[in-house]
Amino acid sequence: MQRVNMIMAESPGLITICLLGYLLSAECTVFLDHENANKILNRPKRYNSGKLEEFVQGNLERECMEEKCSFEEAREVFENTERTTEFWKQYVDGDQCESNPCLNGGSCKDDINSYECWCPFGFEGKNCELDVTCNIKNGRCEQFCKNSADNKVVCSCTEGYRLAENQKSCEPAVPFPCGRVSVSQTSKLTRAETVFPDVDYVNSTEAETILDNITQSTQSFNDFTRVVGGEDAKPGQFPWQVVLNGKVDAFCGGSIVNEKWIVTAAHCVETGVKITVVAGEHNIEETEHTEQKRNVIRIIPHHNYNAAINKYNHDIALLELDEPLVLNSYVTPICIADKEYTNIFLKFGSGYVSGWGRVFHKGRSALVLQYLRVPLVDRATCLRSTKFTIYNNMFCAGFHEGGRDSCQGDSGGPHVTEVEGTSFLTGIISWGEECAMKGKYGIYTKVSRYVNWIKEKTKLT
């Protein structure tokens, strides 16, 4: 034993070699072989497995989906700052455009905790909710729209109204504003409101030439003092309507412009014939205590009207009353817009006519005020429907199939267009061939041609 100890002390290297040989010859039971080890760690190889990531292109799944990435790591994937920024906006807080917040056709661009709407022409605001041009839906104005110097929408209202708090709607500024039905039992019968379409306001006024200088022999019209197929109006439903009495009662109609003036057809009036105007009328054979009678003290036909040349060209006249009318729910003026808007309103496509005229061709006159909704007829169809001249200051309205029309005794009465609950004068009943005849239409004086003249002559002093 002493000898062994001496050998170990003198030859430590020998001992180490012996131990190493023993270990190498022993069977290893701690580690699995290569094949079995792979069965336990069965993990798919990654895209760049075996390579240094710093030297390969980034992978979106590896960089940002398996674990949260930084902007720089995302930049490695896209290799483009702009594309990385677009991805980053949604990656950080989701897609803010998912709810489609942009209105009126706006395009949404996502941002971090926010979004941006790219608005089409005519709109602005956070969600493109603000109209900035009158060309689109009248700028959301209830009545009139004008573009300011910086191309912003400025709404306005006709006389007797003021802008509401929203700067879009119009509200009454006087007790009985024009064009409004205020009798409670008839307010439910107000005709369907007309909503502004998209309009090209630059070209809204037709490029028409008034044929002022045409000389033409007097034409022989049949029954051209021209509501057939209409309905009984309720008291106060058309408070701007008046009836004219002269040699015979209810020979023509008219509309209240203001307390002192009536507008009617020029062919209705004769110099030297006494005319009485009755406002607030409903049943011409009954006294309903809503009527107001006034005498006409002055007749002003349009300066281009000449019955000797043509009885229905420039067929418009103004009547001055001896005493002002007292405005109330049964006696209310009709609204008159400017030339541009009167023309736009007419193009809405349908209007209402009213009167006490004959209820059928050569038949009896109506006792109760009649009204009828009539569609506008395109000019080409209008011209083809008659052998008589249709001037540019006239328009056609009615039904091709016949059966409904204005008729004798309705002449001078109103053709009105309702705009968001307020009625505007767009025409004056003038003439036609018979009444409600198939293929024939009622012919009306186009008020847009005469609004400046009306307003100039009827100013209240």
Rank of each mutant, 00 (worst) to 15 (best):
V374D: 01
I299K: 07
G122N: 05
A233R: 05
E434Y: 11
A164E: 05
K387S: 07
R162Y: 10
A164V: 05
C108S: 00
I15H: 04
F78D: 09
S148C: 06
C18L: 14
T287K: 06
Q167P: 03
T276A: 08
L19Q: 02
V278E: 03
P101R: 03
T461F: 10
E281S: 10
T271G: 10
V257P: 00
L244I: 10
I136M: 13
E456I: 07
K89A: 10
S184C: 05
T422V: 09
S365K: 13
L319F: 03
D223C: 05
K146T: 13
S448L: 02
H289D: 08
N343M: 05
D315Y: 01
Q408N: 13
N213C: 04
F345Q: 02
T271N: 14
E456K: 08
E259F: 03
E456M: 09
T381C: 05
A307H: 10
H267D: 03
C155I: 00
D223P: 13
A192C: 05
C252Y: 02
N138L: 05
G442H: 14
I454N: 01
V296S: 03
E124Y: 04
D410I: 15
N222C: 05
R384V: 07
K51Y: 07
I309P: 04
T81R: 11
G58N: 15
V92Y: 05
F238I: 06
W240H: 02
S220A: 08
G280R: 02
L211I: 13
E420F: 12
E86L: 10
L52V: 05
G122E: 03
T186Q: 14
G160Q: 03
V269L: 12
N151Y: 10
N328H: 02
T271S: 09
A397M: 01
Y450R: 01
W118F: 03
G432S: 13
N42Y: 08
Q57S: 08
G160I: 01
A279Y: 01
Y305C: 01
F251C: 05
R226N: 14
V228T: 13
A397I: 02
K137S: 09
S156P: 01
D378I: 03
D223I: 11
N59F: 07
T186R: 12
E434T: 12
W356V: 07
I284P: 06
A164S: 06
E72S: 08
I454E: 00
G412M: 12
L376S: 04
I210P: 07
E79I: 15
I428Q: 03
G13H: 06
D95C: 03
E142R: 04
K339A: 15
L327Q: 03
K260W: 07
S184I: 15
E66T: 06
A37E: 11
S156Y: 11
